[in-house]
Amino acid sequence: MWRRKGKRLELERLATLAGEASAEAASRMEGGPRPEEDSQSEQAGEHRAPVTPDLTAAAFFDVDNTMMMGASIFHFARGLAARNYFTTSDLAGFAWKQAKYRIGGKESKDNVSSSREQALSFVAGRSVEELNAVGEEIYDELMADKIWSGTRALAQMHLDAGQRVWLVTATPVELAAIIARRLGLTGALGTVAETVDGVYTGKLVGDLLHGRAKAHAVRALAAREGLNLKRCTAYSDSQNDIPMLSVTGKAVAINPDSALRDIARERQWEIRDFRTGRKAAKIGVPSVLGAGALAGAVAAGVAFRKR
């Protein structure tokens, strides 16, 4: 019993550390275009009127299957495989392992711990500048056309109300920040990888930004930014994000999995579903990769590096 309690406390410590590191990174990176500065709107000939800032209210959006179709880290891994960071067979292997785990839920605690320790090791020794440049390219190639227009419109609604909007995702914070900037959002909370002199060490700061870690990140950012969480809104598709959804005054289930849909109905949370028919079926397979995909990507990278 004491051993189990000790593990729970350690997981909570790592989740807290991950959340605080993510909030610090988000505050440091904040400064993306505001609604009136949105380059996409300018290119389309739209001119938004300046808005009065609402400094104590904000919105937090999960990424995978909420803001974007499928798992962002999976799209990122595809792009890295195309650039020989690891092989396509590795990519297929980790996709299958993660799908099997997410469906069956039979991954051991030891495997989870191992994945946590090895996360992002496939970029060890590479510079942040290099990965940022690659991330920009991969966004254009594989992600830009996978944004849910309905979710994007909800984010714009908050921006038009003068509120700040952050993405919250297990995806590496640098990639999350690219997605946020391209969408004209305020910034992003994501998994923080340790760096020394601008080079990745292959270790995480704390844990993956997943589950309770997301809730810690939102609280930490709210404290830094002076937000009133009761006036904030959180959006997600997954039951794994219930801790984050429960932190804010309003929660919205977007394209929810069955468990989240049930809980949303029970708690009278708003439900928005932008999937229809065949499209919803297609989203099913990528969705099983969402929360655990980062750890899966790690396995592929480690396999490549060991070869």
Rank of each mutant, 00 (worst) to 15 (best):
R102L: 12
I103T: 12
I103R: 11
G105E: 11
G105N: 09
G105H: 13
K106M: 01
K106Y: 08
S108W: 09
S108F: 06
K109C: 03
K109H: 03
N111R: 15
N111K: 13
N111T: 05
S113D: 14
S113C: 13
S114G: 03
S114P: 04
S114D: 10
S115G: 08
R116M: 02
E117S: 03
E117L: 08
E117A: 09
Q118L: 13
Q118R: 01
A119D: 00
A119Y: 00
S121Y: 02
F122K: 10
F122G: 15
F122E: 12
V123Q: 01
A124V: 15
G125K: 08
G125C: 09
R126W: 08
S127G: 15
S127T: 15
V128A: 12
V128G: 05
E129Q: 10
E129A: 13
E129Y: 09
E130L: 08
E130Y: 04
N132G: 04
N132A: 11
N132S: 07
A133S: 05
V134A: 13
G135C: 07
E136I: 08
E136W: 05
E137W: 15
I138Y: 04
D140F: 13
L142F: 01
M143V: 01
D145P: 04
I147D: 13
I147G: 11
S149L: 15
G150S: 06
T151F: 08
T151A: 15
T151G: 14
R152E: 11
Q156R: 15
Q156M: 10
H158K: 14
H158A: 04
L159F: 13
D160Y: 10
A161R: 09
A161W: 14
A161P: 12
G162I: 10
G162N: 14
Q163K: 14
R164V: 00
V165D: 04
V165E: 03
L167H: 14
L167T: 08
L167E: 08
V168F: 04
T169N: 02
T169R: 01
T169L: 03
A170N: 00
V173R: 00
V173Y: 00
E174C: 05
E174P: 15
L175T: 10
L175Q: 06
L175A: 08
A176K: 11
I178H: 07
I179A: 01
I179F: 01
I179R: 10
I179K: 01
R181V: 13
R181M: 09
R182H: 09
L183I: 15
G184R: 04
G184L: 07
L185A: 02
L185V: 00
L185Y: 02
T186H: 02
T186W: 05
T186L: 06
G187M: 07
G187T: 12
A188V: 07
L189K: 02
G190M: 03
T191V: 09
